[in-house]
Design a protein around this nucleic acid. Sequence first.
DNA 1: ATCTATCGTGCCGTTATACGGCACACCGTG
DNA 2: CACGGTGTGCCGTATAACGGCACGATAGAT
Lengths: 256, 256
Amino acid sequence: MRAVLNTLRVLEEVATRQPIGVGELARVLEMPKSSVQRSLHTLNEAGWIRPARGEITRWVVTTKALDVGRHASGDLGLRDAAVPVMEDLRRRTEETIHLTVPEGDKMVLIERLETAKPVRTSMALGHALPLHASANGKAVLANSSPEVIERLLAEGLPRYTDTTITDPDRLLAELDKARAQGYATNGGEWRSDVGSVAAAVMGGVGEPVASLSVNIPMSRLTDESQAFFGAVVSEAAKTLSARLGYIPDPAPQASA
Amino acid sequence: MRAVLNTLRVLEEVATRQPIGVGELARVLEMPKSSVQRSLHTLNEAGWIRPARGEITRWVVTTKALDVGRHASGDLGLRDAAVPVMEDLRRRTEETIHLTVPEGDKMVLIERLETAKPVRTSMALGHALPLHASANGKAVLANSSPEVIERLLAEGLPRYTDTTITDPDRLLAELDKARAQGYATNGGEWRSDVGSVAAAVMGGVGEPVASLSVNIPMSRLTDESQAFFGAVVSEAAKTLSARLGYIPDPAPQASA
DNA sequence: ATCTATCGTGCCGTTATACGGCACACCGTG
DNA sequence: CACGGTGTGCCGTATAACGGCACGATAGAT
């Protein structure tokens, strides 16, 4: 269905460049103006976009996408199950708590509870984090199959800050450490001023479905605080995993 | 573009009923199975849905919609401009702060900063609130044109709790009061256990584009706290309005 | 004030393609 | 074993999407 594919491309482009008009869209997407306009008209009719305030020839997205996207919380009622656990976690840490899910080769932020402390870490919901340069990503990787990890390493590890891990062997060692201690850490490897401690949430079928993390400014990330956050976040992740029906292996014996 | 309209309907239905399969969708949407399946295939190809974990015949939405929806923040960079103001507001109140925008006949929550206090008011982003039974809605209504208000009254005022205002005259009086004091209040009129105090954010063209609110459990909503929250929230809304380029009337003189 | 580049809108003939009825393979149940 | 349920796939028809083009309006430059 070419029409649908084109129209969804138009929608995404409107979202990133809003407010935007027919001509510019047609140029960027390399589509005929007529087609773009038809798509815009249809999207408007469906309530996904609307004319920008004041001008009627430029378009912005409505909250329809938000309404649809808020259901994108993993499979089951992941968010509903997670929120109480996250609240408990924030009460204990007094720091910002994130809930992320793996999607493609990224971790996507789907829920967030903010600290009351006067610090700016706020990231918008829907934001994507790299697997190898975030505590959430590393926590999930550490619980993923070797094939998944191998595939990621094959694609290369982009550098974001001067502490980003770009060496495959170092990453593997980091994942071993995460498996051993039950949580993963991130010391400014994605944004240089923010660190985090995360633990994977396991689904019923034995693969990671999400990750919980405590996010703090680098200035507050000491060895002691890291150990404390690691303990509480891994406990929280275990609680949540259990609520999702996951039964952990009593002893890690060789399977198959 | 019929195909697009149908496919978007399918997408929305998948979001609300996920995980769901072809047959059930076809029944609910009253479409031929073939058409639904084609839509699902296309949505999957575009990355908006994916097979549910485990089963391959049922579908769930991905975070694509979230990614698009997070740009739905009013017109300009409303959210970016609002977040610092909201953070200041939370520091002063230590309560949950909401940022909502009018859309259709609802107010939609697009950003949220949580209190650290052990209370559950958490509402998911993208949630819609009624205009006449929320502080945010009343704050926006109080700054809207008489035509808008008239149209809302004509549609009737549904009741949600035993304090919901359903009498048009009482609502008009409430709006007058809001205009006079610069903020609107809500005493459990939408959810019986949660109250709020809100002020409208004005855009450059002189109409309300958003609303900021302080949300508290009814138990903490006293006359004194209400006055305090009203003062700080209306000040915050004025600050944000100014940043968006709004120049308030020095004296409220009759305009045409 | 005229010219011009660029905007958004709308028409229309062609042809691609979405439609939806139908038949099939499959699974778990009565 | 038959049956109601699932998801999948094919195919002929006719609809409607495509995209080139022309028009009118707007805004900036000369």
